[in-house]
Amino acid sequence: MDIRGSIVALVTPMHADGSVDWERLKKLVNWHVEQGSHALVAVGTTGESPTIGFEEHDLVIREIVAAAAGRIPVIAGTGANSTDEAIRLTRYAQRAGADACLLVTPYYNKPTQEGLYQHYLAIAREVDIPQILYNVPGRTACDLLPETVERLCKVPNIVGIKEATGNLDRARELMERCSADFMLYSGDDATAIEFILMGGHGNVSVTANVMPATMAAACDAALAGDAERARALNAQMAPLHQGLFVESNPIPVKWALHEMGLIDRGIRLPLTTLSGPAQERLRQMLRDCGLLEVK
């Protein structure tokens, strides 16, 4: 598997009542293909994976795979805090036609490093689809340490990691410990371009939901070693790297896409729509980035 560049952590568009908006989902996929995004993540954190049920999970992945139609790869989010559930979700994703799976560390139950190793090893042995580890301790209360990643990168179908700490020293250590063909993805928009310039392979991005062409171009430049262009493009997006996290993701990005006319306002409890004070702040950032007309 050789997926590089801007990988959109795709929202799951919903109607006001919280039901999935299948028509808007297809339109979003087509838009990202047209804008030059390099790959999509289906039903990740930004896709509201915690409130997407098993059957729906399978359907969303199938619809995204069908809409992408082989034009760009689709990576399915299939992590869980139960190893059996993660295996089940990963099998579903393989049957649905996903190109790879993204598996967040088990949240809440706080396994040891040996537990994490055994968890990922069990999934890899049960399902032969390419698998990408996902470390985001700020959400999971669980940190997949570099020495454990080094052990896991030797498993044939564990092909990469999304490292979302934003810690570039951690990224450097992963690069030193893992083989050159092990794919290293940033999961932190604010530091992603520097991550790629250091030797990373791509960015699993929230910002790319609203500025896909710019993020794709910035990642392309960084992969080509053109630091000046990559940083200049990144500067155009910098306000959104912060603004899209004024409240818990994906609250701000779904609100932003609604303001841009790309999706309805639906979001599922316990998440709620963006609060009033944050709306005006983010609206101004969208205007500054040329995504909304100045009124």
Results as ranks from 00 to 15, higher is better:
Met1Gly: 08
Gly5Ser: 02
Thr12Lys: 08
Thr12Gln: 10
Met14Tyr: 10
Val20Met: 06
Trp22Leu: 02
Leu25Arg: 07
Leu25Phe: 02
Lys27Tyr: 06
Leu28Phe: 04
Ser37Pro: 08
His38Gly: 05
His38Lys: 04
Ala39Ser: 12
Thr45Pro: 01
Thr46Val: 14
Thr51Ile: 13
Asp58Ala: 11
Leu59Gly: 05
Val60Met: 05
Ile61Glu: 04
Arg62Cys: 11
Ala69Trp: 03
Arg71Asn: 15
Pro73Arg: 11
Gly77Asn: 04
Ser82Glu: 08
Asp84Thr: 14
Thr90Gly: 11
Arg91Glu: 15
Tyr92Pro: 09
Ala98Cys: 07
Pro111Met: 02
Thr112Leu: 08
Tyr117Lys: 02
Tyr120Lys: 05
Ala122Ile: 00
Arg125Val: 02
Glu126Met: 05
Asp128Phe: 08
Ile132Tyr: 02
Thr140Asp: 00
Leu145Glu: 00
Val155Pro: 09
Ile158Ala: 06
Asn167Tyr: 03
Glu173Pro: 03
Met183Ile: 14
Asp189Leu: 10
Phe195Thr: 04
Met198Asn: 00
Gly199Glu: 15
Gly200Ala: 05
His201Thr: 03
Thr207His: 01
Asn209Met: 10
Met211Trp: 03
Ala213Gly: 15
Cys219Asn: 08
Cys219Met: 11
Ala221Cys: 09
Arg231Trp: 01
Asn234Met: 12
Gln236His: 11
Leu240Ala: 11
Gly243Thr: 00
Gly243Cys: 06
Glu247Gly: 05
Glu247Asp: 13
Val253Ile: 14
Val253Gly: 09
His258Tyr: 13
Gly261Asp: 11
Ile263Val: 15
Asp264Ser: 15
Asp264Met: 03
Arg265Glu: 15
Arg265Val: 14
Arg265Met: 12
Arg268Ser: 10
Leu269Gln: 11
Leu269Pro: 06
Thr272Val: 13
Thr273Pro: 10
Gly276His: 12
Arg283Ala: 13
Arg283Asp: 07
Gln284Arg: 15
Glu293Ile: 07
Glu293Tyr: 06
